[in-house]
């Protein structure tokens, strides 16, 4: 890509939380593909090493950290240089019907999906790690489950709803520094997390679900390319927005 293109990430550094697998890994790859450098954060060091090996040490590095723990957030943020943007693609998905919901499970999911994002951003901003007045960009990977009611996804959907709501508030607070904040809300994307669906739903039910997607289920790169656009200067007039990525599922009848 021409490094003068507004779509290029050349000369910029981005942090991707959840870079060890799925959508986060795909985003890390896309950042490098578009000329940027990536610092991946995740819990699994072996996976992070593989990511760096694949992308090259000149383009990628990693910090092993569990962002559900305050001390890990502190340590990770301490280690970071000044960055041009942050992507939060870390999280967990648990199926649990209302009748079986427990405080412990809600805490676990909110901590992994919501507290981790907000507390990390708080530290990044407090320590002025995100470059100001340069249209720096924060992208939070939320979920379409925040817009629809999917059986058994109460804890997950609530955590993503909280994340999407938080993004608008944070966008408002950071606008003065010309730091942008946007949210992506993908529908079904083929990742290891999504593969859990086959553990609880029949193949017949999944086939019926997939058939309702005009463009089929999404792939991790479908989310990654959109993230790259939101990280780039090509989207410098976009902030506080939520973009639904669903291959037409919600709107096309």
């Amino acid at each position: 890509m021409d490094q003068n293109s507004p779509f290029s990430l050349s000369g910029k550094i981005f942090v991707v939380a959840g870079a060890s697998s799925g959508i986060g890994l795909s985003i890390a790859k896309a950042v490098v593909q578009c000329g940027g450098k990536v610092i991946g954060i995740a819990r699994r060091e072996e996976k992070l090493r593989e990511m760096v090996a694949e992308l090259g040490e000149g383009n990628a590095s990693y910090i092993k950290a569990d962002l559900t723990k305050d001390e890990d957030i502190q340590r990770a943020v301490d280690m970071l240089p000044e960055i041009n943007g942050y992507v939060h693609a870390a999280g967990i998905l648990l199926h649990q019907p209302l009748k079986f919901i427990k405080r412990e499970l809600l805490d676990q999911v909110m901590n992994a999906n919501y507290y981790s994002a907000v507390l990390t951003l708080s530290e990044l901003v407090k320590r002025k790690k995100i470059r100001r007045n340069l249209y720096s960009s924060i992208v939070l990977i939320s979920s379409i489950s925040n817009q629809v009611g999917s059986k058994s996804l109460l804890a997950y959907s609530s955590s993503k709803g909280a994340m999407s709501a938080a993004a608008r508030v944070i966008a408002s607070e950071l606008a003065i520094q010309k730091i942008r904040v946007n949210t992506l809300e993908p529908a079904m994307v083929m990742t290891d997390i999504a593969a859990q669906a086959s553990e609880v739903h029949s193949a017949e039910a999944l086939a019926k679900d997939a058939a309702a997607y005009p463009f089929g289920y999404g792939l991790p790169e479908d989310i990654a390319y959109c993230t790259v656009f939101l990280l780039s200067d090509a989207s410098k007039w976009i902030t506080a927005q939520t973009l639904t990525l669903d291959g037409g599922w919600r709107t096309i009848v």
Binding site: H95, Q96, P97, K99, F100, K151, S152, S198, E199, V200, H201, S202, A203, A205
Partner: peptide, 22 residues
């Protein structure tokens, strides 16, 4: 239904600490 299936899975996990798969 798929909802009852989800409840059975959750019940086995809660009552017996057993994972029922698809």
């Amino acid at each position: 239904s798929s909802m009852v299936a989800l409840m059975i899975i959750a019940m086995a996990d809660e009552n017996y600490n057993k994972k029922i798969t698809g």
